[in-house]
Design a protein around this nucleic acid. Sequence first.
DNA 1: GTCGAGTGGTTGCATTATGAAACCATTTAC
DNA 2: GTAAATGGTTTCATAATGCAACCACTCGAC
Lengths: 149, 149
Amino acid sequence: MAKRTSLKDSTCPVARSVEVIGDCWTMMIIRDAMLGARRFGEFQKSLGLAKNILAVRLKALVEDGILKLEPAADGSAYQDYVLTAKGQAVHPIMVALRQWGEDYAFKPGEPTTIMVDRKTGKQIKKLELHAADGTLLGYGDTTIVPSTA
Amino acid sequence: MAKRTSLKDSTCPVARSVEVIGDCWTMMIIRDAMLGARRFGEFQKSLGLAKNILAVRLKALVEDGILKLEPAADGSAYQDYVLTAKGQAVHPIMVALRQWGEDYAFKPGEPTTIMVDRKTGKQIKKLELHAADGTLLGYGDTTIVPSTA
DNA sequence: GTCGAGTGGTTGCATTATGAAACCATTTAC
DNA sequence: GTAAATGGTTTCATAATGCAACCACTCGAC
């Protein structure tokens, strides 16, 4: 039987995250939600994906507590899909994906978009990883250990 | 026709990243590579996925310049899969996924693993996003604009 | 050298997910 | 009241996934 293998019970947080949001469309839906999309039709037009696929993904995102349904902001009888706190917390992942894409997936001069500080309009810095004492950490400076909690 | 839609030509860096590494297994392979896995068999045993799937993913990762093949470190006639600079640059994404998973995908007390500073063994801080002037930025403090390059 | 185990795959086939298009029930605009 | 927009569901073809069997090459022991 060829059921898609589940990583839900893995003890690795990366595996669990990937299980929930490690899907192409799921990630793009969250991206659009962060850019202000709220309605089924908005997502569909922006992403250009089949409506059935979108319906399945949105349902899953609501079940996982990343999106929630609330009465439409424009007062109509329809509903808005809005990010929960859990959904907003995906922001750093989105930024990390964006910065990697900027660096490695574009030829110089290719048209693209950049992330800026909303207040100043200036481009943001790279994400930074710090040790407990504040030291800047790079690839190779970290390891994984079992939690002792 | 039901060909999987490609996001390769999107002008959004997030879309391009997701297109390349936004696959469940691909991400897990990179994770294992960062933890030291180098050989086909190591990946297969650690991830428990079908060998044909692994073969396809590894080939794609090599083609995308994330992994490269080099003579096995143990001197045998086999080959090692090792991360390129582009592959190592995925580290922040991995950290972001990990931190989100730690926060939202585990019940308190559930066994898991944590990321620590290799030198001190102390748990690392959260990823930080800073504005050009050094201000710490959170969700909602950023926007996307077309690049003016 | 040569026999068997281990490594690193490929091939075939069943099952599942994806995607396009058609369809349908409400809701809104006119 | 009627037409169009919204937000889906259904149907069916195609593509991806996953298991198992198979195969070529390497290595270590003898």
